[in-house]
Design a protein around this nucleic acid. Structure first.
Lengths: 158, 158
DNA sequence: GCTGAAAAGCATCGCCT
DNA sequence: AGGCGATGCTTTTCAGC
């Protein structure tokens, strides 16, 4: 299902998206008030945005530390081959680990950028070692986050 | 406000967190049904999790391409100094750009990992050039995402 | 800390503009 | 397309266990 730049996104739709990106649990009545609409057309627009796949879902944003995930880090992983089967196998492996939260293939061939969480430094080391020893992995560079200056969910709705 | 591993997080709380992480717009009665509680105590638990800062918010997950953000990329930026003032200035600059969605300081000194969105490749090049020419920037390595195998909001709630 | 009832507020539908 | 009014749920509070 390809969508591309829907032209049918007017300024009210963008306003709705901005509000729901900022507070996804807002009631429809409150949302309608903010975008200067009455509740029924507002709800119809939200449903349309959901059905079009523009709104992909709603998620609570949970503090990792509260759940015992003290360390967040990135890993830049280089594979020894760019064969599709090798790339697919690495992706499948990475996706199967709950500690891997994101797995992005990087342009240039055979590299992946992962975002991971770990319970502590020992766990982080263990995960790094597991990555290093995974099939077809040539090198692993860990990028440990020590401070996050900005972490905005989503995209600018300008 | 430090919280660390709240011991006061029982299995029902974790179940609530997992459900709201998966669907942040679920009604409270549906949530209560899923965690085998009646609505009022379920709502009290949610409020407590919000007030404790364990639930930091709720966000609609919006498809970037639908809003015209065709390119998502990361940038690994190296600065020529590790002085606090230089780091702070770079962070403030990065945080002020709407296209910069995340800005993480990396352990090891003077490096930042950014996540950015761009309207197209030309815009990406322009952003990269702006980074390269920013004060104190020594080098910029762009990591362009060509495929995302996994992109889970948040953390494992195991 | 839970349950159950009750009041207020919300989502959602059909119809009208 | 947006608004209005009606209906059935949901949310939220408050007693009582």
């Amino acid at each position: 299902m390809t969508r591309e730049q829907d032209p049918g996104l007017d300024s009210v739709d963008r306003h709705i998206l901005a509000e729901l990106q900022a507070d996804g649990r807002m009631t429809n009545v409150e949302l309608a008030r903010r975008v200067n609409l009455s509740a029924p057309p507002c709800l119809r627009r939200v449903r349309r945005l959901e059905e079009a796949g523009i709104i992909r879902g709603y998620h609570a944003d949970i503090d990792p530390v509260s759940l015992g995930w003290e360390v967040t880090f990135f890993a830049l992983v280089g594979l020894e081959s760019q064969k599709q089967a090798v790339l697919d196998a690495f992706e499948a492996l990475a996706a199967s680990w709950p500690e891997v939260r994101e797995c992005h293939m990087i342009r240039g061939g055979g590299d992946f950028l992962l975002r991971l969480v770990a319970r502590d430094t020992a766990h982080e080391n263990e995960l790094t070692a597991r990555l290093t020893n995974a099939p077809a992995v040539l090198r692993v560079q860990t990028l440990q986050t020590i401070r996050t200056a900005k972490d905005e969910a989503g995209v600018p709705v300008a």
